[in-house]
Design a protein around this nucleic acid. Structure first.
Lengths: 333, 333
DNA sequence: GAATTGTGAGCGCTCACAATT
DNA sequence: GAATTGTGAGCGCTCACAATT
């Protein structure tokens, strides 16, 4: 049963006041008498009035909505608990504001429909996560509304507003930990090279091995997915090289690797030590529980919102925020 | 660099035509000369013009957006590959239309902000998935815009438009399969009782056992999550009862159960057979690969869109669509 | 008369300012 | 003069209809 919506004029008529007074009540202006406010409130209840958002946006030039743009494969976005944590941080920080969150899935090249939507005033700003090097449509969005990026872009630009984790530091910490455990034949499973976080974690990994005078046993792309991690692990084993440790650049890929190691009859950590990245919800429930690099995913979501809110109110937040990482030792190393 | 948007009047002036002609070109009307069309196109390009969606919505009374409303815990929504499949079906079916998808996370009681947004003309209709019995805000949405439900509500209402799987049939098929395998001491791990799909799958399970003159060894709530499934399996084992089979009402819960069984030193399927539900992406990669009930999750997403599109164009689609299920036998039974 | 184009009104709000108490 | 209220214009489109070729 869809009831047609009532308008501000109808509410005004019923309450015996003008359009303006209704608008003031709806928007919480203090410049309204108690009597008028009460009468408007009653009329709003009686008529089940909800302000028309398109009209409000047109007049005020603000939509009070922000978009979370996800240029990622749906299965990957949903499959990775890292995103769940970021999103819940975003939602939590937004709860106390008047902004509503609008999740826009922009798999592959989203085309003019999605790009146009984001440029058309439907949202006041956007948070873009899990972006890839070849996502050119992003520039068209950033040319129209304020944008904050979760993770630096592959081509880093100083004018971007970015909330990133210390991925290089995380790659370093994971690798140093493996060296401390006495491992010397270390492989890594990376994220896709189209993402800065993949490159940074790999850089940290390589730097530490370099300093130790070692070379990686293998560098395999696991595409940040569980199946990709499993496939990468299989390739590493199939190459016939000896391996005593693996740094997987996400917990999900690490879980895939653990599965393959178990199926191959290799013990973790006795034969092969494994370090993940994220410390997502799944890290504690793999078998064995996963040593990993914690990044504050939820906090990253909150920070993304804070930067965007600053931008929307015309402030000048810092361009690059780097969240600290931390090694969490469990039983896989 | 945010550039302020140009308007239809500016495009008209530059192209040397009226506002109306620009509108016709933008909206693909055939009643425009080639010359005018070309000149408008150039002006649009030059000015980087994108129609203001709020103005369009206000004038046309259509937003060309539909919402996917998810009254579900963020971690659960993201963690379950079933939703990923439904969402990708929705996106796929929507790709060929002018509608944009707006994912709205409505965890817990979403409050007036979200409800108001959905009632305010921001979207033309809504698809609601993973709804629970106590989600009262749903009625307020359904009173304002057309709504299609993914899954029947706990209180089934004939006037609702619903796309559902044959959950009772799925529960039956899973249980019959276990009986055929010679199992007699069968437990079930259910979804939350606030969801119709949980109740239906349990009904199918009970009916088949009843017909066979058997009683369930245990009925434990696993909350449709992997950890919930693991905890439920632990409770079943701790009860000390003999169990030779488990029907878990989702693949994710089944995976949790498999983990607990392995840790308890029980072999699957030799000691305990396990059937899941969904045939989601993870079913084939558990160890052992999971026997499960396939529901066409992606197809369900597509169908949800089709029903809603019918509603939006004023047609009268059928109220209840039931998607068929199918037993998929792998190695866990 | 058919094809193309433009005009006027209106969608439902906000916001500046004037008017009223 | 301060507190409260209302008026007019305008946000950027669409849509019916009239005007033009």
């Amino acid at each position: 049963m869809v009831i047609s919506a009532s308008t501000i004029e109808e509410v005004a008529a019923r309450a015996g006041v003008s359009r303006s007074t209704v608008s003031r009540v709806v928007n919480g202006s203090p410049a309204v008498s108690e009597v008028a406010r009460e009468s408007v409130r009653r009329a709003i209840d009686d008529l089940n009035y909800v302000p028309n958002r398109a009209a409000r946006a047109l007049a005020s030039r603000h939509s009070q909505a922000i978009a979370l743009v996800v240029p990622e494969d749906t299965a990957r976005f949903f499959g990775d608990p890292f995103f769940a944590a970021v999103v819940s941080g975003i939602q939590a920080r937004l709860a106390s504001t008047d902004y509503i969150l609008n999740v826009i899935l922009a798999t592959g090249d989203p085309g003019d429909k999605t790009t146009g939507y984001l440029r058309s005033g439907s949202v006041d700003g956007a948070i873009i996560v899990s972006h890839h090097d070849n996502d050119t449509f992003i520039d068209r969005i950033a040319g129209a509304i304020p944008v904050v990026y979760g993770g630096r872009r592959v081509r880093v630009r100083d004018e971007d507003h970015v909330v990133d984790s210390d991925n290089v530091g995380g790659g370093r910490a994971a690798t140093e930990h493996l060296l401390e455990r006495g491992r010397r034949r270390i492989a890594t499973i990376t994220g896709p090279p189209s993402m800065r976080s993949s490159l940074d974690r790999l850089d940290g990994f390589r730097a530490v091995l370099d300093d130790a005078g070692l070379a990686p046993v293998a560098v395999e792309d696991g595409d940040f997915s569980e199946d990709g991690g499993a496939a990468a692990m299989r390739r590493i084993l199939a190459s016939g090289q000896e391996v005593d440790a693996v740094f997987a650049a996400s917990d999900l890929m690490a879980r895939g690797a653990l599965r393959v190691l178990r199926d191959a009859g290799l013990a973790v950590p006795d034969d092969v030590a494994v370090v993940g990245f994220d410390d997502s919800m799944i890290a504690a429930t793999t078998s064995p529980p996963l040593t990993t690099i914690r990044q504050p995913s939820r906090g990253q979501g909150e920070r993304l919102v804070e930067i965007l809110l600053d931008l929307l109110r015309g402030a000048s937040p810092e361009h690059a925020t780097v969240m600290p990482i931390e090694l969490v030792v469990r039983e896989s190393t």
